[in-house]
Design a protein around this nucleic acid. Structure first.
Length: 208
DNA sequence: TCATTAACACGGG
DNA sequence: CCCGTGTTAATGA
């Protein structure tokens, strides 16, 4: 039995299910920046995140993107769940935020497990719920909050994934995620620096 | 008023 | 030199 499966999922899944995951799951390691799911792609397996962070985003034809939410260890992609039940294509793009480890579960299994394991069914429903809540929060941010608040929230959210609250990114990257221009990001970051909320360095931002 | 676009200068790697 | 960054001027919503 893979140790990582146990550490992350033992408290929600029964022993029997953990064994099955261990048997049919394929462990996949990805590097920061690797693309996991493209828009329009048919999905054949659903990922369980063992370690790392996955960025899930919406994207239009011109390649303009908007961050929806981050997935952390012990979570799964709700989009994949809905794609699996209806033979539909993905509506989102998923990219590894940092180096990550996943277990890929074939979709036939995930359907079978829903009737077989209560814990699995709960996990699936909880995932739907959690992801929906996060999307709602993102919508609230876009609709009701100003860019400076969105930026600060984004930074705090992201800081959790990095050591010492040092975020490795560029202003342009942030601009893409928040769907704004780099000029605005630079200006707002500078403002936050003056307010002693953050410290700016090239390719990295430190939160206080 | 505030975002966007284009343009430019600065500086570190 | 290239890229990330900081700033400005013009334009528009």
């Amino acid at each position: 039995m893979l140790e990582e499966i146990k550490t992350n999922y033992a408290h929600i899944f029964e022993e029997e299910l953990l064994e099955e995951i261990n048997e049919v799951g394929i462990v996949k390691k990805v590097k920061s920046g690797d693309e996991l799911i493209r828009i329009g792609q048919y999905l054949t397996a659903m990922p369980l995140l063992l370690d790392g962070v996955i960025k899930v985003m919406r994207e239009d034809k011109e390649g303009f993107e908007l961050l929806l939410y981050f997935l952390e260890k012990g979570e799964t992609c709700a989009m994949t769940l809905s794609c699996c039940t209806a033979t539909a294509v993905s509506e989102i793009r998923a990219v590894a935020e940092i180096d990550s480890t996943l277990v890929m579960i074939p979709i036939e299994k995930m359907e079978a497990w829903i009737s077989k394991y209560k814990s699995w069914r709960n996990f699936v429903f909880d995932s739907y719920h959690n992801r929906l809540m996060e999307v709602l929060e993102t919508i609230d941010n876009i609709a009701f909050k100003k860019m400076d608040q969105r930026l600060l929230k984004y930074l705090h959210n992201k800081a959790k994934f990095y050591e010492n609250s040092e975020i490795k990114t560029t202003h342009q990257e942030i601009a893409y995620d928040l769907h704004t221009s780099r000029v605005v990001v630079s200006r707002l970051l500078k403002q936050l620096e003056k307010e002693k909320r953050i410290a700016l360095q090239r390719n990295s931002i430190k939160l206080f």
